[in-house]
Simulated scan of single mutants.
Amino acid sequence: MVSTSPAVYAERDTAVARLPSGTVEYRLEGDGARTVLVFHGGHMRAGLALGEEVFTDAGLTVLAPSRPGYGRTPLTTGTTATGFADATAELCQALGIERLAAVVGISAGGRTALAMAARHPHLVERVVLQSAVGFLPWPDRRTRLGGQVVFNARVEAGTWAIMRSLLRVAPSLALRLLLRDLSALPARQVLAGLSATEVATLTGLFTVMRSGRGFVADMFPVPDCASQVGQPALVIATRQDRSVPFAHAESLVTVMPHAELVDSRADSHLIWFGTDYPRVAARIHDFLTD
């Protein structure tokens, strides 16, 4: 039974930088001597943190920009994964960050993380990819067509307003609808495997998501730069991911010379809610602190 009590997700404070490449919204959080750069996934933005505890527990400061079309970063800043990688390098320079302990790419942010590592190797020491989109065709035709209809800039606010209402009045149904596109397993099974705390966290997060102009832009093809990423890389994915098939992770590890594949046992795209996430988090921690 999913609780019907209202879920609260605290969005974190962000700032805006005016750079030669354009405006970038970002969050800089923590007091570690070294910094990790996190490129969020679809429907997210700089103020929404997910799974960042592994980085702060490793003593790292987190820099999280909103990618183009999300939050207060306009689609015109960088526009493409390559262009925004260059814009983010400008942001690092403006913030006085000369070296990044790692760049992290989550889901649709994976290609921007790879572009960052390929184009700015002097800045990026390591790469961590989490359920990341690679350079295979993505998304599938159904998702592409559906995404262009319900998440385009003219209607996405209404789409998320309907979802927020459904999360309030029928949370179990709403979560099943959302999880259906994130897992190859039955949504009821995935939902049943979540703890009450995880359900509350997911409900709160889904309540504050927005797509802006970013999600439709995420679906455009991006030039493949994976073979140019020479840094040590950790590629984390689950075989139950319906949103980003496991083949993306496999293809990246095949061409990246120093990449390690971590096979998550999570039931869905959301690897942070897998029963084996403590194992995965420990590997991330060791990778970043070796």
Rank of each mutant, 00 (worst) to 15 (best):
H122D: 15
R213C: 06
H43S: 13
A58N: 00
G109W: 13
D267C: 13
L145K: 08
G214M: 07
R18T: 10
Y9D: 03
L50E: 09
L205G: 07
G193F: 09
L173T: 14
T159D: 03
H120K: 00
R27H: 02
L234H: 09
Q189N: 04
P139V: 07
R164Y: 09
G47D: 13
P68Q: 13
M256R: 01
F84M: 09
R34V: 05
A113C: 09
T275A: 15
W138P: 00
S211K: 00
Q231H: 06
M219P: 12
L166G: 01
G212F: 11
T82Q: 13
M44R: 03
E11F: 03
L175W: 13
A247G: 00
L48M: 15
A187C: 11
H122N: 14
A196M: 01
T56G: 01
G32W: 11
I271G: 04
T4Q: 10
V208L: 08
H285I: 00
R180W: 10
T14Q: 03
P20S: 01
F206T: 03
R239C: 04
V103I: 02
G71T: 03
P221R: 12
H43P: 00
L252A: 03
W138S: 07
S183D: 11
R164P: 05
R176N: 11
F246E: 04
L202C: 09
S251N: 14
P20C: 00
P171W: 13
D140Q: 03
V104D: 01
R176I: 03
D276W: 07
A282W: 04
S195C: 04
F39Y: 15
A259H: 08
L202K: 02
R111Q: 14
S172R: 15
Q93L: 08
P221T: 12
A17F: 10
F287I: 02
A10T: 15
D290L: 10
A81C: 14
R142G: 10
F39S: 01
R239Q: 14
G134A: 04
D140K: 07
P6Q: 09
G204T: 01
A200F: 10
L63M: 04
A115D: 13
T76V: 09
V2E: 04
A247F: 02
L136Y: 06
A217S: 14
F273G: 01
I271T: 13
Q130W: 11
E25P: 00
L63Y: 09
P257D: 06
P20M: 04
A49H: 13
Y26V: 02
